[in-house]
């Protein structure tokens, strides 16, 4: 539930960028004959609403109502004492405050048209209490799932989103790069201080404390002894854009080789999969509302290859000269014959 800097920058996320996204959505809604689209947001599912408005909830939940034409309306369970903060940090036409966001959103849509066709992003996963309130507030509304429509628009990153991801990656790389200390707590503290001081909205750090014993990451609580090689994973957000980076410590030469192999494995995406030499691997990206959904990986059934132009985060484990190395970085999927490429170099040597 932690949060760092939440602020909107008109340089990094200009009105024109958000309006262009809304215009594309409006056109797609017209084709699908939706009168309105509804997107849920909370602390862990912010990526749909933040993509259209910049709004990131630090607490509670909300629904964005996007009419086919006109400005979106944000219905939030946050009290109206934070209305000014919401208006400062996001771009919406109107903010409505109510504990029953489903009821208010439905009433708002039904006022314009009682039998409106309403597309709901991730309708199956919508909290049931909100779904019940939508039906109560607009008994004549025709509700259906709009995940596929939204996902298709959301998949390809525009230059503003790529720039935010690059900034997030740069913060993460810098923070992992300055990691220092005699204990795990001190190391994690140094990474977190750097990332947040550079403006990270959030950073979750996980550790694999002894790669000779265990190559999976755990949350850091209390103190743990460190093996001769260990790894940290930073899951980091900057202005609504999330990335993951991994650094292995204590194995500089093989970590450099692992970084090189990761770049090679990523290059052919989304076509051929170049991860055959890795012990495990995972590619995550945003489909609808969760920032990092599993798309492909050694443990993922039914892969969903990211389309050209998508932003993803890649993490992998590889054995080199008998040593386990964990490596990870965000990447941009290539298009029109271009290779996919990592956004930052995961070599910290």
């Amino acid at each position: 539930m932690r949060r760092g800097l939440i602020a909107r920058s008109l340089v990094e996320l200009p009105d024109a960028v958000l309006q262009a996204r809304l215009d594309r959505l409006g056109a797609a809604m017209g084709e699908a004959q939706f009168d309105a689209l509804v997107i849920y947001t909370n602390n862990t599912r912010p990526a749909g609403v933040s993509w259209l408005t910049g709004f990131v909830p630090y607490w509670s939940e909300g629904l964005l109502v996007v009419p086919r034409a006109g400005a979106p309306v944000l219905v939030v369970a946050l009290s109206f004492r934070v209305k000014a903060w919401i208006e400062r940090t996001s771009r919406v036409g109107e903010v409505l405050h109510t504990p029953r966001i489903g009821l208010k959103a439905a009433q708002r849509i039904a006022t314009a048209r009682a039998d409106a066709a309403v597309g709901i992003v991730d309708f199956e996963g919508l909290p049931s209490g909100i779904a019940e309130d939508l039906r109560e507030g607009g008994p004549g509304l025709r509700l259906s799932d709009a995940s596929a429509l939204f996902s298709k628009l959301r998949a390809k990153a525009d230059p503003a989103e790529i720039a935010l991801a690059a900034r997030a990656a740069a913060i993460g790389r810098c923070a992992l790069g300055v990691a220092a200390g005699d204990t795990l707590g001190a190391i994690v503290a140094s990474v977190e201080a750097e990332a947040r001081s550079l403006g990270a909205e959030e950073i979750y750090l996980a550790a694999a404390t002894d790669l000779d014993r265990e190559a999976r990451f755990m949350r850091v609580e209390g103190e743990r002894s460190l093996g001769k090689s260990f790894a940290l994973r930073a899951t980091l957000a900057y202005k609504g854009t999330w990335v993951r980076l991994v650094r292995t410590f204590g194995a500089t030469a093989v970590a450099r080789e692992a970084a090189s192999r990761l770049a090679q494995a990523v290059a052919p995406l989304p076509g051929d999969c170049g991860f055959s030499g890795f012990r495990s691997w995972l590619i995550e990206g945003c489909r609808t509302t969760q920032p990092l959904d599993a798309l492909m990986g050694s443990r993922v059934d039914g892969s969903t290859p990211p389309p050209p132009g998508a932003l993803v985060s890649v993490q992998a484990a590889v054995s080199i000269d008998g040593q386990t190395v964990l490596v990870g970085a965000p990447a941009l999927i290539g298009g029109r014959g271009e290779a996919s490429s990592l956004i930052v170099d995961p070599d910290f040597g």
Partner: peptide, 12 residues
Amino acid sequence: VADIESHLRRRG
């Protein structure tokens, strides 16, 4: 806030 979160991580 960066100082505080860093302090808390140092404390485990």
